[in-house]
């Protein structure tokens, strides 16, 4: 069975809080996982005595275990992929903000178009 790195929602109504867990793909969301490797608090918070309006999100993660599980073939979900890519554990999947470079076409294709 596929092992996934995913989020398990805890917290209360209107105040979500997630465990970052390693679990078999077909088990229930909040069932006991193979391992809890971190937490993710999705509510952005301000620093105390900071009026700049800049908010932050707190994540606790055991990066070593995450790397291990990726190494043995665990598949992160999209959200976890995004978080792991911030730490450089995964290649970013979406939202590549770098300017897009057009793919280089095979050399053989160009003369074919130009011929006759």
């Amino acid at each position: 069975m596929v092992v996934k790195i995913r989020l398990a929602r805890f917290g209360r109504k209107n105040s979500p809080f997630y465990n970052v867990v390693v679990a078999h793909a077909r088990t229930a969301r909040n069932s006991k996982p193979l391992e809890v490797i971190g937490t993710y608090d999705p509510i952005p918070r301000a620093d105390p005595y900071d009026d700049s309006g800049r908010l932050h999100k707190d994540i606790k993660l055991d990066a070593i275990r995450a790397r291990y599980w990726i190494g043995v073939g665990a598949q992160p979900t999209d959200t976890v992929w995004r978080l792991l890519s911030m730490l450089g554990i995964m290649e970013p999947k979406y939202r590549n903000t770098e300017p897009r470079i057009p793919p280089v076409l095979p050399r053989e294709a160009l003369p074919q178009q130009n011929s006759p």
Binding site: R12, N14, S15, F17, I43, R45, A46, Y49
Partner: peptide, 12 residues
Amino acid sequence: VNGKVRILTRYY
């Protein structure tokens, strides 16, 4: 409280 109008807690 502590200079804040809003107290953000785990329970909002």
